[in-house]
Design a protein around this nucleic acid. Structure first.
Length: 585
RNA sequence: GUACCCGUAGCUCAACUGGAUAGAGCACCUGCCUUCUAAGCAGGGGGUUGCAGGUUCAAGCCCUGCCGGGUACGCCA
């Protein structure tokens, strides 16, 4: 179906065709000069070359054609050859009625049920989740929700880091100190028992890892332990299984708090059995060769402007690396799901790794040429000082600590504003939680994915301006209004558009553009921008006319209908961002 | 050293991939709560888009060269 601008593009495109010009020149967009028109088409200027006429002449012919069409209330030429367009209120109303009733809110089916695997987890099972996992989870989960909505079959995979040298270090430390019982005696049904092991690892892992870096003997032992683990030898493998089970419990808690969902709870270890046959195959194809005692896939190409190190499959000591498991994961995904796309939502700093991986995968014929492999990388989350985010003490902040801090801030801010005072404690805590998550997620998602961003807890919990809580507030306000009016939120009434209504009505036609823009480049921030503009347009509308006291019944119903549609769009958009709206606040 | 990313209002960020007068939020200033939730609304000041060239009807966006910041560059993930 598409946005209103897309529909108009079809009409204007036909007008270009009737002049013997390509219909793509007819692309219509929302005007960036609302004082001049509702929509604009810039194609006449681009088409003037092909037509060998001056731009205003081309535009003139198009305008003449369009003026015959009753959907337009105004079509005129401006400046060097812009075509400015207004539509009639009837046409606008009919569009809103149609999309308001549509299951997909007017968005076209872009996915065609194609399968896409999304990789946006990557927590390490040797330690508790920390802020470094936040962006991946938030952005990746949002992309998954968006793609699912536009018709893709989506599979989100947590893809745990559970098979590398770090596990060898940790497990070797338990064994050499004879402290295996700490792991093995952990009771999976007891939160305190789980916490105890997590705390033990939180102390042990950095110490073991630091010691191994200092001491080559320890590092050699860690590598040996890693090989034993990867060969599933005991007691290494048994310890590993328990650590993994305990860690998953912690991950589940964290991801549930963030309202981040995964279809697949897989890890590097799950693909272990694919590795040997895959490497054999690559060796047979001469794609994998020996180099410095390691087995590698060279990925450099003639035309390269920089150096591409090979992807290492087996290190000199025979252990595998993350490139190996990533390759094997592609093999598994192709075998089990046959995806059309695989999207990795991973820190931008791993860009080179993914270039190597994709080249090696294609060179080895692991995926068909038509399969899209994308690294949707993101920038660093910095603190207010502009450097990577740290605790006050300079350490890495745990994810659950960060969430509690945001909840505390949300709670105290609600108290200050005397909000939710009459609520039962449980509901109040739930609202504070939703406000905190909305604050964190919106602050992250509103920035362009590729850029670094500053995470300033004080700022994003100040609850003013372009923030998650502001958006929740507007949504809740609409809901409350509709409740008071006794107007069914799913209903729609015939629209009567006065000057105060029109900006909101026009904005409501843009939803498909913002969703499609978000899908195209895996950019959720386009959706944030739309949600914010919508909330603001509503707030302005709300301030400019008093709806409940409106005496003209038809106008009152029309406005309630606009409110309901605005709410439904906000709810949909927040849903795609992974943000929950409380009933009241 | 080589490659990639970034540089936009005092601060934090947008700009629908080349369109008209570069937009928001915070901060600052002026109004608005005895009517639907003021976490709000209406308005104001604030810019040589790092610098210099180039491409074209049109450049924050594309090309070249500088300046400044970040990141990555074989046996970690």
């Amino acid at each position: 179906m598409g946005s209103l601008a897309q529909k108009l593009s079809g009409i204007v495109g036909s007008a270009f065709e009737s002049q013997g010009l390509d219909k793509s020149f007819g692309t219509v967009r929302v005007a960036d000069r609302p004082d001049l028109a509702q929509f604009q088409c810039n194609g006449a200027m681009a088409a003037s070359k092909a037509a060998k006429k001056n731009p205003r002449e081309v535009a003139g012919a198009i305008v003449e054609e369009l003026q015959k069409n009753p959907v337009f209330s105004k079509v005129e030429i401006a400046g060097p050859g812009f075509i400015n367009i207004n539509v009639t209120d009837d046409y606008l109303s009919a569009y809103l009625k149609e999309t308001g009733a549509d299951k997909r809110a007017g968005v076209s089916d872009l996915g065609h049920n194609e399968t896409v695997v999304l990789d946006y987890g990557g927590p390490n099972i040797a330690k508790a989740m920390h802020v470094g996992h936040l962006r991946s989870a938030i952005i990746g989960d949002s992309i998954r929700r968006i793609m699912k909505f536009v018709g893709y079959k989506t599979l989100g995979d947590v893809h745990m880091g559970d098979w590398g040298t770090h596990m060898g270090m940790l497990i070797d430390d338990y064994i050499t100190r004879g402290e295996e019982k700490i792991v093995l005696d952990t009771n999976l049904n007891s939160q305190s028992s789980i916490d105890a092991l997590m705390e033990d690892m939180a102390e042990r892992y950095p110490r073991a890892s630091g010691a191994a870096k200092e001491n080559p003997d320890l590092m050699a032992r860690a590598h040996a332990a890693t090989v034993k683990l990867q060969n599933k030898e005991q007691p290494h493998y048994g310890l590993w299984e328990k650590i993994r089970d305990v860690s998953i419990k912690g991950m589940e808690r964290n991801y549930a708090a963030l309202n981040v969902f995964f279809d697949l709870w897989k890890g590097e270890a799950d693909v272990h059995d694919y590795i040997a046959p895959m490497v054999e195959d690559l060796q047979k194809k001469k794609v994998a060769i020996e180099s410095d005692g390691a087995q590698v896939v060279p990925v450099a190409e003639e035309s390269d402007k920089k150096e591409y190190p090979p992807l290492i499959l087996y290190k000199r000591d025979g252990a595998v690396m993350y490139g190996t498991t990533d390759m094997a994961t592609i093999v598994e995904r192709v075998k089990l799901y046959n995806p059309n796309k695989i999207v990795y939502v991973v820190d931008q700093r791993q860009g080179l790794h993914f270039e190597q991986l994709f080249r090696a995968a294609r060179k080895g014929g692991l995926v068909k040429a038509a399969v899209e492999l994308t690294h949707a990388g993101f920038g660093t989350m910095n603190g207010p000082d502009g450097k990577p985010f740290k605790t006050r003490a300079g350490g890495v902040m745990r994810l659950d600590d960060l969430i509690s801090m945001a909840e505390e801030k949300a709670k105290s801010r609600m108290d200050e504003a005397h909000l939710a005072e009459d609520m039962p404690a449980a509901e109040k805590a739930d609202v504070a939680h939703k406000v905190a998550i909305a604050a964190i997620k919106f602050a992250d998602l509103q920035n362009s994915r590729v850029a670094d961003y500053v995470f300033d807890l004080d700022k994003l919990t100040s609850f003013e301006g372009k923030t998650g809580p502001y958006l929740l507030y507007q949504a809740v306000r609409i809901k409350s209004l509709l409740r008071k009016a006794g107007y069914d939120i799913t209903k729609s009434s015939p629209l009567m558009l006065a000057d105060v209504d029109r900006p909101l009505a026009l904005l409501l036609t843009e939803l498909p553009d913002s969703i499609e823009g978000a899908v195209k480049n895996y950019f959720p921030h386009h959706l944030c921008d739309y949600a914010y503009r919508l909330a603001q347009a509503f707030s302005s509308f709300y301030g400019n006319c008093h709806i409940l006291s409106e005496e003209n019944k038809a106008l009152r119903d029309s406005r309630l209908s606009l409110c309901a549609q605005t709410y439904r769009q906000l709810e949909l958009t927040f849903g795609l961002l992974g943000i929950d709206i409380p009933e009241r606040m």
